[in-house]
């Protein structure tokens, strides 16, 4: 009776699999930990009665962009690299005008009567929640 243990020698295929695991692991970790730059992008999302009407990255704006919301009330929203503000509104509360310019991730402008939310998202060292 002959006892023998098979000799396992890595082949080129094994190396390929190891390489694939390494690439996938690094790739997943980079995505999860938010690497590869892009840290300061701020995306502006404007929703009107639950529907997204505009979504744009602030830094992608080369000039001021105007978005008009037309419903029971009319709002004019101005977007620029420096921030976002409501320039005109005929809603009764005028809270959206009073809010002024928002430019940092986490900030928002809300028009309750017309159910418009202008929200800035992105990486930020700022607060998680704004109260008041």
């Amino acid at each position: 009776m002959q006892s023998s243990s098979p000799k396992l020698r890595p082949t080129a295929w094994d190396s390929l699999i190891v390489l694939a695991v390494i690439v996938l692991a690094i790739g997943t970790a980079i995505v999860f930990y938010g690497g590869l730059g892009g840290g300061d992008h701020i995306t502006v999302t404007i929703t009107h009665r639950g529907e997204t009407v505009e979504k744009v990255m602030l830094e992608a704006l080369n000039e001021e962009k105007t978005v008009t919301i037309d419903g029971t009330y009319q709002l004019t929203v101005v977007l620029s690299r420096d921030g976002v503000w409501v320039s005109e509104s005929n809603c009764p509360s005028q809270d959206c005008l009073h809010t002024g310019t928002v430019s940092r991730a986490g900030q928002s402008i809300v028009c309750l009567p017309e159910q418009v939310v202008i929200r800035l998202d992105g990486k930020s060292d700022g607060p998680d929640i704004i109260l008041g």
């Binding site: 190891v18 695991v21 390494i22 996938l24 692991a25 690094i26 997943t28 970790a29 995505v31 999860f32 930990y33 929703t47 639950g50 809300v110 309750l112 159910q115 939310v117």
Partner: peptide, 27 residues
């Protein structure tokens, strides 16, 4: 390989969900 796999498993962290509604006369 173990370290890298651990790093990649971090992507399996509990999911973050958000929701926005209009109710009680506010957002």
């Amino acid at each position: 390989l173990c370290v890298l796999l651990t790093l990649s498993l971090a992507g399996c962290a509990p999911k973050e969900e958000t929701l926005q509604i209009f109710a009680m006369d506010t957002v």
